[in-house]
Computed example of a mutant assay.
Amino acid sequence: MEVEVDYAGIGEVARSDEVRQMVNQAADRIAAATRTAVGPDIPVTVSEYTTDREAAAVTIADRRGLGLQARDGVLTRAASGIGADVRIR
């Protein structure tokens, strides 16, 4: 059996509106869980962007964010809480 990978087709799917919507919904759920964990006085933002695929970043937009992630893993826990597969590289 021979398999041929259609890289152009995969890229087209990865940049599609359907994938964008799924990525943004996941990011919004992670942001909501993070906001619950850190409280209302610490801003949490979602930034949507496109590279070779649709993507989004959830950020604790406060100087305390690094400590909250390092000490409590709030972003990691929020992502895991929605079923995301979180891995350290």
Rank of each mutant, 00 (worst) to 15 (best):
V5M: 01
D62R: 07
V38W: 01
G73M: 06
V58K: 04
Q21E: 12
D62T: 05
G65F: 01
R20P: 07
A14E: 07
T45S: 14
A55G: 07
A26T: 09
V74Q: 04
R63W: 08
A8I: 08
A70L: 14
R29Y: 07
I82R: 01
G81N: 02
A61Y: 09
V44A: 05
V86G: 01
T45K: 15
A78V: 03
A56D: 04
A79P: 01
R71A: 12
A32H: 10
A27W: 00
N24T: 12
T76E: 05
A57W: 07
V19P: 01
G83W: 05
L68Q: 02
T34Y: 04
Q25S: 13
I10C: 10
T36P: 08
T76K: 05
R77V: 09
Q69F: 02
I60A: 01
E4W: 08
R53H: 11
A84V: 12
T50I: 10
D62A: 06
R63T: 11
V3F: 12
G9K: 02
T45A: 12
A26M: 10
T59M: 05
R35I: 07
Q25H: 11
R29C: 09
R15K: 13
R15S: 10
A32E: 14
V38H: 03
V44I: 07
Y7W: 13
G67H: 03
G81C: 04
E48S: 15
D72S: 06
P43V: 08
E12G: 15
R35E: 15
S16P: 04
M22R: 13
T45D: 15
I30C: 05
E12F: 11
R71W: 10
E54R: 15
V3P: 07
I42N: 06
S80G: 13
D85A: 14
A70Y: 11
D72K: 03
T50C: 12
V23Q: 05
A32F: 09
Q25E: 15
G83V: 06
A33W: 06
S47C: 09
A37Y: 03
S47W: 11
D85P: 07
